[in-house]
Design a protein around this nucleic acid. Sequence first.
RNA 1: GCCGGCUUAGCUCAGGGGUAGAGCAGCGGUUUUGUAAACCGUUGGUCGGGGGUUCAAUUCCCUCAGCCGGCACCA
Length: 420
Amino acid sequence: MQRIYGLAFATEDELKAHLHMLEEAEKRDHRRLGRQLDLFHQQEEAPGMVFWHPRGWALWQAVERYVREVYRVSGYHEVRAPLIADVSLWKKSGHWDNFRENMFFTESEKRTYAVKPMNCPGHVQIFNAGLHSYRDLPIRYAEFGSCHRNEPSGALHGLMRVRAFTQDDGHIFCTEDQVQPEVTAFHAQAMDVYAAFGFTDVTLKIALRPDKRVGSDADWDRSEAVLRAALKQVGVPWTELPGEGAFYGPKIEYHLKDSIGRSWQCGTMQIDFSMPGRLGAEYVDETSGRKVPVMLHRAIVGSMERFIGILLENYSGALPFWLAPVQVVVAPIVSDADAYAGEVCAALRGAGVRAESDLRNEKINYKIREHSHQKIPVIAVVGRKEAEQRTVTLRRLGTEQQETLPLAEGVARLEAQSRL
RNA sequence: GCCGGCUUAGCUCAGGGGUAGAGCAGCGGUUUUGUAAACCGUUGGUCGGGGGUUCAAUUCCCUCAGCCGGCACCA
């Protein structure tokens, strides 16, 4: 069979607009920005995986620090589970039956281990290690969980679709009555996070029961209903995707639109009434009986890798100050100001600002051009005048205005902007 | 994974059956500079891996890998 693809436009202007869009998309392609801004690279020996360079990892950590703070204030306990576990665990969890084609395996001393494709079984093990009262619920675990999935080679795409990724994953063990409040609380939190990162075009979907599933129809009826009720309660529109739920339960999906109009699923809130039972999770209820908790799977940014890719494209690499890997470059004009530049840089670092100095023997024009291309948000220019008067002259990316102010004031101002 | 294309210096890219070039970057100098490229000199490549054809392959053929575009997939 032969397929022929084509695009057609009604007018020449529409064609031009389309070509312009493709050009813009290429300029802000996160793979290209990753090279230009020295954030990360990928190489043949590790397809679908990422080597994070110092600047890329600084960005990662800025995202991670913010999300970690969200965990903290919303009652999550951060945990950490092993990256590999005996395959028997994955047989119990159901992953072996459903997804072994997409899992990586390794072996040692005649035992086969699976590299974890999801974090939930690990979190259930942590839950199971103690005895829990209904009074303790909901129990919320969070992890920047490293996962590996053997995605089809043709699906790989920069940071957007990788084989090794890290989820801002969380699992909530709760009673059925607690599901709706947890879902609405999660929603508010997720929307706040998206707004903080600059995303306002978020669409919600509820993925409903698939053909291949576990659990009774009554369970599915209740769990789908509670998701609808939660979204109705918070007053947001959604669309429904019949047949697209996970095999263990329905889910809400949060889709963010990127700068070139592609929509990426980032956040998710899933109800799971299968895995806790399969893996033996239980709590003690009011009557001293044992009950199986409901488990909620949730993520806000989803994959850290993908989310960073979306951030880069959304901002064309010109990240807001609080996320920029290098927030300030201190650039002396003459070598007589080198010592003072070092002092300014140290003061900024002391205040928690990611600052570097550029003492190279280059003209200030050259430095400004280069650091502007590197999308550094603030260039602090110091010449003889600044060194004598103990001031800094700040130049913001994207403007030609400059502002000279006393060193302490400049440091305080940048410090205030350096974190959300 | 499927169909098609691509793979040449750190980056962006020329070139082509007789063992390779540019710009930028890098390095060595000169220059001490006030808001988007100072000047001079110069290093650098097993032309993605393996095999084949040929007197000779980076160039042609086969194969593998990765990447790119699309499709399928995405717990």
